[in-house]
Nucleic acid binder design. Structure first.
Lengths: 138, 138
DNA sequence: GCTTGACTTAGACATTGTCTATTGTAGGAT
DNA sequence: ATCCTACAATAGACAATGTCTAAGTCAAGC
């Protein structure tokens, strides 16, 4: 994760204790924390960090493309630090558990056992993102 | 849409003015309203309908599989009445506009022009939904 | 070690969604 | 046709998540 800090410094980020802590919290595979969970873990390391700073920092990391925002059907957005490795998500419809998956080939085909983590998959949803004609004109 | 009302009656739904209004609002192609928008349009037709009823009715329609919940990265969930025709979504990253698309073949390939609605697509996201091992055991 | 503008803070505010106690009513029973 | 009753709707409090502002703080360049 220190390479992340390096990259951020290279982009002109002022390196503060708060930002370091948020970056540390967002480390690992299959990490998909809500903003509140990030805040709770950050507070454990740096008690005076505020909610606003966590939201700001997460938003900045997302704009820089270092972290992905994941919208499952749960209420809160989740933040996925694994932005540099393209992958998809496997979500439990009941408890909301999330795993990263890296299927090859047609994503609409069944997930291979090795990527299924024991889930019973019932549905696949594809979202294309981009700019609509009027927004790309502006 | 009246076939929807028939189906609901067949499932033992008590047919109230409020439910009829919500069903009417959710009609058409490329309809992806937030709960609040549904409420606003419902109020135009039936001024005394309450927010709670709209939320309840939407939730029931989703459980029955008549309406899909769509989580784009916008704040509020959106409701898509086109549940019986499998399709995916094209979302504008800036203004949040949503279109339904029906690509054939590999969804990771480029969308054909006929399905692109003039969007500049920059990203594809795939979400698999199902039950995790502990939830399917229970 | 100063200075300065970017960063952080606390907490009010806004938005979205849920719950409860009460009142109303659809539709079957009579 | 009218009455009953369980299901549905209502208002509004509450909860969860996210945004904004005004004032104080500090990293980094000089």
């Amino acid at each position: 994760m220190s390479d992340l800090l390096e990259r951020l410094r290279g982009r002109g980020w002022r390196m503060t204790a708060q930002r370091r802590v948020v970056a540390e919290v967002l480390d690992g595979e299959h990490v998909h924390l809500t903003a509140d969970e990030v805040h709770a873990r950050a507070v454990a390391k740096l008690p005076e960090i505020s909610r606003a700073t966590v939201y700001n920092t997460l938003g900045e990391l997302v704009s820089l493309g270092e972290v992905l925002e994941v919208s499952t059907d749960k209420r809160a957005k989740r933040y996925d630090p694994n932005a540099h490795r393209p992958h998809h998500h496997l979500v439990c419809a009941r408890c909301g558990a999330i795993r990263d998956v890296h299927p090859t080939g047609d994503p609409l085909a069944d997930l291979p056992d090795s990527e299924r983590f024991g889930f019973a998959v019932s549905d696949v949803e594809v979202t294309y993102r981009g700019l609509c004609p009027s927004c790309s004109a502006a």
